[in-house]
Each structure stands twice: as structure tokens, then as C-alpha cells.
């Protein structure tokens, strides 16, 4: 870490906190036990600012800013839990539930799902928007893992962990808008992939039941993404 890093003081939800100038609002909030919901963000992967759940209000700015990619500034006044923000967050989650077929009761990740946990924590009791019920495939061609597109929320954690940590870049996104889909290599069955190393990193960073280990039944697929901060720490140490 460069020695010349400056320290900034800011205010989050009325609390004075200090931060290194290269930190994001999310990092500082977490250090201070201030909870901001996130879905696409994962420590150790490049930030994308895509899910918009971490949006916060900043005094003097008319725009809402994603805490996961917004750098701290001296004197910044951040609010993370206003009524408006909570309502936006609930609506974004509702949209996500309406988009594909998220049927928790029969999902392998039931009880271990980040989206489900968030919904509970944000007090989501029902979905106002009409469900889209798209017809989506399940890829069971890989001998160890499976991909259920019905549960995918397009957070791209799998794409990033595979490209950035494993270095294989098996996954990517194809198509636009609501038709966007995670694809394997050149849009082929996972089992035929020539780049997949079967490391399973994607499975364990996936926040929902979209990527899973085969042989697990409903509610049995718990995820263990803890390897990620460890790997990034070791890499940083190795690089220095």
C-alpha cells in the first residue's frame, strides 16, 4: 500500500467516520457496521455497479450513487437508510423476482440464498409486478455442476470470478435487455467447454441457486465464497 494515502473524514448516517482516500463508501460503511444491501458486489472481484441495491444519498447531489463504486470524499454526508432508498431497494428486488422463475420452496439454495435473505431483511412480503414466467433452460451437461437460468439474476459474479481469479473466462453474457443470458464459451453446453477447469469458483460466488453442485437436493446447496478474500489477499502479498 502506498504510504502517501490520505485520510478523509466523512459522515455516514450521522456518524463521523474516517477513511483512506482510496476506499469506497461501501467499504467504510462495512468497517463501521453500517449495513448497505448489495448483490452484484463481492469483495475480491472488480466492481460493476450493476444491481443498484447499494444506492445511497449524498448531501448536495441530486443523483443517487452506488456505494460499491463511489469513492469517499472529505466532508461527504451520506445517508444509507432513507425511506426513499428503502422503497427503491424493495422495488428493485421485486423486479428481480418478477423477471425469472424464482420458486424458493423447490430451489437448491433455499435458505442459503442472498437474494432471499435480502428480501427478508428488506421486509418484502409480496411482489406487485406481474411475473414474467419466461421459459428458460437448465444446463446439466457438466458432470459436477449445473446451471439453472431460471434462478440467474445476471449479477455476473461467475463471469468475473472465472475471468479475474481463475483466469479461464468460461462465462460471459450474451443478448440484450431482459433476454441477456450467461453463456459458456461460445454459447455451448457447459459439459462441452474446453476452457472450464471444473474449479467450482463460479458455483460458490453465485448468490442464488443458479449455479449449483449436482447431487444436491432442495435447500442443500450452501455457498462458500470465503476462498475469495483469502485468494486476493495471498495474491496481493505475492505481488508485492
Amino acid at each position: 500500500m502506498p504510504t502517501s494515502v490520505k485520510v478523509k473524514t466523512l459522515r455516514i448516517d450521522g456518524r463521523d467516520v474516517s477513511a483512506r482516500e482510496d476506499q469506497t463508501i461501501l467499504e467504510v460503511a462495512r468497517e463501521n457496521d453500517i449495513w448497505i444491501p448489495t448483490l452484484c458486489h463481492l469483495d475480491g472481484l472488480s466492481p460493476v455497479g450493476a444491481c443498484r441495491l447499494c444506492l445511497v444519498e449524498i448531501k448536495g447531489s441530486t443523483k443517487l450513487l452506488p456505494a460499491c463504486v463511489t469513492a469517499v470524499e472529505e466532508g461527504m454526508e451520506v445517508s444509507t437508510q432513507t425511506e426513499g432508498l428503502e422503497s427503491y431497494r424493495r422495488m428493485i428486488l421485486e423486479l428481480l423476482f418478477s423477471e425469472r422463475n424464482h420458486v424458493c420452496s423447490i430451489c437448491k439454495s433455499n435458505g442459503h440464498c442472498e437474494m432471499q435473505t435480502l428480501a427478508q431483511r428488506l421486509g418484502l412480503t409480496h411482489i406487485h409486478f406481474p411475473y414474467r414466467y419466461p421459459s428458460l433452460p437448465v444446463d446439466l451437461s457438466h458432470e459436477l455442476f449445473g446451471m439453472d437460468h431460471n434462478r440467474c439474476i445476471l449479477c455476473t459474479r461467475c463471469v468475473r470470478v472465472c475471468a479475474e481469479i481463475e483466469g479461464a473466462h468460461v462465462w460471459d453474457v450474451m443478448g440484450r435487455g431482459v433476454d441477456a443470458r450467461i453463456i459458456c464459451d461460445l454459447n455451448q453446453p457447459w459439459g462441452t467447454s474446453e476452457t472450464c477447469t471444473s474449479c467450482g469458483k463460479c458455483v460458490h460466488v453465485c448468490p442464488t441457486g443458479a449455479l449449483f453442485e449436482r447431487g444436491r437436493s432442495a435447500s442443500e446447496m450452501d455457498k462458500r465464497p470465503e476462498f475469495l478474500p483469502y485468494l486476493t489477499l495471498m495474491r496481493r502479498a505475492g505481488g508485492e
Partner: peptide
């Protein structure tokens, strides 16, 4: 807009579809 949405962020990707509906 719903067809041209890139699909990266949730409000635009799903919101425009629901609005169109």
C-alpha cells in the same frame, strides 16, 4: 428502450419491460 437496454442493471432491464407491459 426495453429492446435496447443492455441488461446490465436491474431497474432498466426489468423496469422497462414492466412499464411496456
Amino acid at each position: 428502450s426495453r429492446h435496447e437496454s443492455c441488461g446490465k442493471c436491474i431497474p432498466c432491464r426489468v423496469g422497462t419491460v414492466q412499464m411496456h407491459g
